[in-house]
Design a protein around this nucleic acid. Structure first.
Lengths: 356, 356
DNA sequence: TTGTAAGCGTTATCAT
DNA sequence: ATGATAACGCTTACAA
């Protein structure tokens, strides 16, 4: 138990030099040290199996070389990929990555922020947060905390829409949803349902807005009876399927826009359980283009977000901020729609044929 | 930039007490402090917005309250879920979780272990490592490193088979694969192909072994021409599909055991691209029971591993070890097979019908 | 080129 | 019950 890890003092002693010199060698300082002593120190360190203590180093240096990534849920492939991207860049720059699952709960978010402040994390990448709700008291505290963290010199980057005072890289949710809806309309669909995300989550509402905008522009009045509540999970999609199935035939939409891919997967599964044939009975699109989107049957039409790349970009922005390189405060991250088999022309849909 | 975070010294000054007293209050020590002073300290801390420095605390306490989880790739849902479970338990016990993507590369593994040693991580959960290759020089160094880490007093737990000196919780890969293969045999299949995992990765070979064992016991001689190389990815599964498709009709298997679910997904996708109908043309099973396994068409027969729970168990074992509670060195984690639509009786298979 | 010593923010030991 | 002080392991002025 008593782990007598050798410290730099031991190394110095063994090498017969001062701690300062030993430190200069071990820390890779540019400070001049004669070749002879350098080697003696290195040798001593090797012999003692010396391991520098990052905690002490960080304490002294006032920077931890720790980057945190706050995600809604790492078990969700969306977040898992973003986190992967963050870690990739962080690691290649000598940073460790701390992962925090917030479950989109402001209380948990706040608690993590507090802890990360305690640990003097150098950077924090936010994703899967962002609520429209400004009335929640925690939101104010989060605002406050974020400011404190930034004042300390740490960098914060948001990868989802947020009304906080921090640089962000935001996927073009509105644009993607708009394009996707336009595409459905071009296919001839007019009754297009929408399965929402969790209430008051900004990303979800941005997508809803894009959907509505496309409808309106095409002269279709958004019909709120075609809005079904979801929560970004497969289970939510399945519940929406049950509700769709309850609808009298003539009220059924010929297409559904699911707020994210997971929802679309659950929706497809649920509808099929209820005996619907896809895509004949209904066209479906998702959002995100998860790796499974092309694997399901029928392959899912969706909007691609290069999630791993988004994570990488987030981490890179953190690094840039830490070096006080001016980076634009708000960047947009492209989303491009991917047309696949889950959406077919209204002309081919059974809902259309039935009506004939 | 100059972040004048107040330290405990400032709090003490403001409260008009010694740092010792302030510390006793702030650290939640059991040491007696009069109610009056306690409140003065608390007030001062609040006014100064004092945030204890975990780095300093860890340095002093010789424990970092950091737990690391080493995964092959966090973008793989298998690992993402395990990591989620680890983080869940870690967080609820006041630990932060560091995530490390090793890409199953011993060099990267070693480098992470080194860094984690530097940071004095209290615990390390390994998963997605474990090679049969003992000849690789890095493997020896990893052994060495692990021992060093343990000597320091840190806890290490393996969640995949490993020939290292550390406690482990291992999913019953052999048993699951055995059961799954038995099931295929019961369905009447005799020509059962196997898509492997990455070469020399122990988990993959354990599954192969279970498959072989079941065949042999049923009097079927394992046929190595039915072994197709995979690598635990969708892409690997797709390549295997192409190879299967090349096979002359009479040499085709009537069922395939894919070494994990991702491979099975790729395989299904690939085969369908080549015009195969599933499950009529071939039965398929995977391993892992990822959330998508039930969503694909046909729903995938597979062996369930409660991955999040596995991660939780891993973290719990770390905590137990840190408190020197004796926990059994080697635990087995159950796998249970889940029968779904992707596997049908040989009697219903087209390969059988064709032969008639 | 090398060494001395102060300090990063805590906590624990020993006095008082 | 409270306080002074010495660590924890490292880096960096400042001296030599």
């Amino acid at each position: 138990m008593t782990s007598e890890s050798p410290s730099i003092v031991d190394v110095a002693k063994r090498a017969g030099v001062s701690v300062a010199t030993a430190s200069r060698v071990m820390s890779g300082s540019t400070y001049p040290v004669s070749e002879g002593t350098r080697e003696r120190v290195l040798l001593a360190a090797r012999e003692l199996r010396y391991v520098p203590n990052s905690l002490a180093r960080s304490l002294k240096a006032q920077r931890s070389k720790l980057i945190a990534v706050l995600v809604g849920d790492n078990a969700d492939p969306y977040f898992a990929q973003v986190a992967r991207g963050v870690e990739e860049v962080a690691n290649s720059h000598g940073y460790l990555t701390i992962i925090c699952n917030t479950e989109r709960d402001p209380i948990r978010e706040l608690s993590y922020l507090q802890t990360l402040q305690d640990y003097r994390a150098d950077g924090i990448v936010f994703t899967g947060s962002g609520s429209d709700e400004t009335s929640v008291p925690e939101q104010l505290e989060i605002d406050d905390m974020i400011e404190k963290i930034q004042r300390r010199g740490a960098a914060i980057v948001m990868l989802s829409p947020h009304n906080l005072q921090a640089p962000s890289i935001q996927p073009d949710n509105l644009g993607g949803a708009y394009e996707l809806t336009r595409y459905l309309i071009e296919l001839g669909h007019t009754r297009i349902a929408f399965v929402t995300g969790p209430a008051s989550v900004t990303v979800a509402n941005q997508r809803l807005q894009g959907y509505r905008q496309a409808l309106t522009e095409s002269g279709i009045t958004p019909d709120d009876t075609l809005l079904f509540p979801g929560n970004f999970t497969q289970a939510g999609g399945e519940r929406a399927a049950a509700m769709l199935n309850q609808l009298p035939r003539e009220k059924r939409p010929s297409a559904v826009f699911a707020c994210n891919d997971e929802t679309a997967f659950g929706l497809m599964y649920g509808l099929r359980q209820h005996g619907w044939r896809l895509p004949e009975d209904i066209s479906i699109c998702g959002f995100g283009n998860l790796p499974m989107a092309r694997m399901v049957t029928p392959a899912l039409t969706t909007a691609n977000i290069s999630l791993r790349e988004l994570g990488r970009a987030g981490a890179q922005k953190i690094l840039a901020l830490l070096q006080h390189q001016d980076t634009s405060a708000q960047e947009t991250f492209p989303t491009t729609i991917v047309k696949r088999a889950s959406t077919i022309p209204f002309a081919h849909a059974t809902s259309n044929i039935d009506e004939k």
